[in-house]
Write a protein that binds this DNA or RNA. Structure first.
Length: 504
RNA sequence: GCCCGGUUCGUCUAGUGGUUAGGACGCCAGGUUUUCAACCUGGAGGUCACGGGUUCAAGUCCCGUACCGGGUGCCA
């Protein structure tokens, strides 16, 4: 039975790297008819951010990654919030101590800092709390059992550290990277249990993965260095470890480091699925949703960062991804995020939508502009604009003139197309237009083209200014379709007001 | 510093010892259009990080170096 989990910590808004980790877990679970579990790793009280968990849940919901077990929906292996499982971790830490795999330590932060400082100055290649240094620190190795007991009973702060064996060759296997060999001398006696009564990630993670019967751990590459420790912990508990797959990181577009919170707004693309306001600083960050990205586009973008199907297909639905996903087509190297291609994905998915669906999505934008319109008209507008839009909002920015007259005229367009004799031509054109009874695109086109030819004018000399008057800019959908839709009366009105305001 | 991972067009990538190194985004040009987009056609862009091996044959296997990234916390 495949069981995988997405285990974020609620220390801020989930970012798209995390969302991709969730996606790959989800795809793997669904592909293998397994379970996908959400577990909240809130063992760091200091970094806990209120609202972050809700944000994670809402983000997953938005992109459609539904989980089978989780903090808000429960499940057979709960609770799914680590802060509610602390007693469990305490118990298992005790087991490790009894087995000799862990020990108590009483060193203060200052003492730890001094130790590292000393090693640095001694130019030691390793500056670790390990078999070489623990004999000089305050812990179960240097204090008698009675002293340790006394200190704990006196309420002194302590941590529980892993007893990292010396000079042990550890070979771990990663599904994506193959064998990774590490010598335990490069590892340290990691803190497993903190003095605040909470476990660290390493302990809680191993215990939960075991208890929740996780079969595959699919997580970010930043965890690869601690995999040997985790393997050792499974060994210490005498538990069967799950299989591991470490995903390549999503990098900044310029290739300098992991994609991070700050990059987004700065570089003109979102880093978070949804809008987020930091409860402490009030700092705001834009999300994909609010930016106008379709959830299916976001999924598609993330899926193609670090994975490919081995075919030329690039546009996928979630369902198609489930069918085709496999961990052995996951890339080893980090992928730079490409904002341009992200937009293209959105456009591709937008184009797959029906006119009705697009209208549904566009309606709130119209409402926010205070526009009311009838459905048939809206549908026709959308059909004209559909192919020239990357985001829903652009139905407004590129098509507002279907709903209200232009308030200004594009300066560049005026400069190019508005000549000395243009006002006169436009007024004559207006007369011609008023004589067209059958105001349909095809007919308008035939009559106007005929008229232009009879006046021995060029199409562009007439039609570019006309477009400018009616919509305020020089580029847009098929001119005659546009005129038909806006309607004869309104077209005439716009020519009149335009000619008189542009007159200067 | 030490440890781990990575390295194919600007970017995402195909490629598992024998191909003119393929596709996509972006870019450029032409076609279509009154215009823009879409669409169609074409183009530029890669000494497969570098240096050594192994082999009849290496982007593909091995070693070294460089560079990039991650880790190195009582963060996750």
């Amino acid at each position: 039975m495949v069981r995988v989990r997405f285990a974020p910590s609620p220390t801020g808004p989930l970012h798209i790297g995390g969302l991709r980790t969730a996606l790959f877990n989800y795809l793997f679970a669904r592909k293998n008819s397994g379970k996908f579990i959400l577990r909240i790793e809130d063992t760091d009280q200091m970094r806990y951010v209120p609202g972050a968990e809700e944000y994670i849940v809402e983000s997953l919901k938005w992109v459609g990654l539904d989980y089978d077990e989780g903090p808000d929906i429960g499940g057979p292996k709960g609770p799914y919030r680590q802060s509610e499982r602390v007693e469990l971790y305490r118990k298992y830490a005790q087991v490790l101590i009894e087995k000799g795999w862990a020990y108590y330590a009483f060193d203060t932060p200052q003492e730890l800092e001094d130790m590292r400082q000393r090693l640095r100055q001694a130019k030691s290649s390793v500056q670790l709390y390990n078999h070489l240094t623990r004999g000089e620190m305050k812990n179960s190795f240097t204090l008698t059992q009675a002293e340790v007991k006394e200190r704990i009973e006196a309420g002194e702060k302590y941590v529980i550290r892993f007893n990292m064996p010396a000079d042990k060759q550890i070979i771990v296997h990663d599904i994506i990277r193959g064998e990774v060999k590490v010598n335990s001398n490069t590892l340290d006696d990691k803190v497993l249990f903190k003095s605040d009564g909470f476990p660290t990630y390493h302990l809680a993670n191993i215990i939960d993965d075991h208890l929740m019967e996780i079969s595959h751990v699919i997580r970010g590459e930043e965890w690869l260095p601690s995999l040997p420790l985790h393997i050792l912990l499974y060994e210490a508990f005498e538990w069967e470890p799950p299989k591991f797959a470490h995903l390549p990181l999503i990098l900044k577009p310029n290739g300098k480091g992991k994609l991070s919170k700050r990059d987004g707004d700065q570089m003109g693309f979102p880093v978070f699925p949804l809008d987020w306001t930091d409860p402490k600083t009030g700092e705001k960050a834009r999300g994909y949703r609010e930016w106008g990205y379709l959830p299916e586009a976001v999924i598609n973008i993330l899926a193609m960062l670090g994975w490919n199907p081995g075919t030329d297909q690039e546009i996928f639905t979630l369902q198609e991804l489930i069918e085709q996903f496999s961990l052995d087509r996951v890339q080893k190297s980090g992928a730079k995020f490409d904002p341009d291609k992200a937009r293209w994905f959105n456009q591709q998915h937008l184009r797959k939508k029906s006119t009705q669906e697009l209208a549904q999505m566009f309606l709130p934008v119209l409402e926010s502009q205070g526009i009311e319109t009838d459905e048939q008209y809206l549908f026709r507008v959308i059909e004209l604009l559909k192919d020239r839009v990357e985001f829903i909002e652009e139905f407004w920015t590129k098509g507002f003139y279907f709903f209200e007259p232009p308030r200004s005229y594009d300066a560049k367009g005026l400069k190019k197309a508005w000549k000395q004799q243009t006002p006169e031509i436009m007024l004559e054109l207006k007369e011609k237009i008023s004589q067209i009874d059958d105001f349909t695109s095809e007919n308008i086109e035939r009559e106007l083209k005929q008229w232009v030819e009879s006046k021995e004018l060029s199409f562009s000399k007439v039609f570019t200014p006309l477009r400018l008057l009616v919509q305020g800019s020089t580029s847009g959908p098929h001119l005659f379709d546009m005129l038909e839709l806006i309607g004869k009366k309104e077209v005439i009105r716009r020519i009149e007001t335009g000619v008189s305001t542009i007159k200067r």
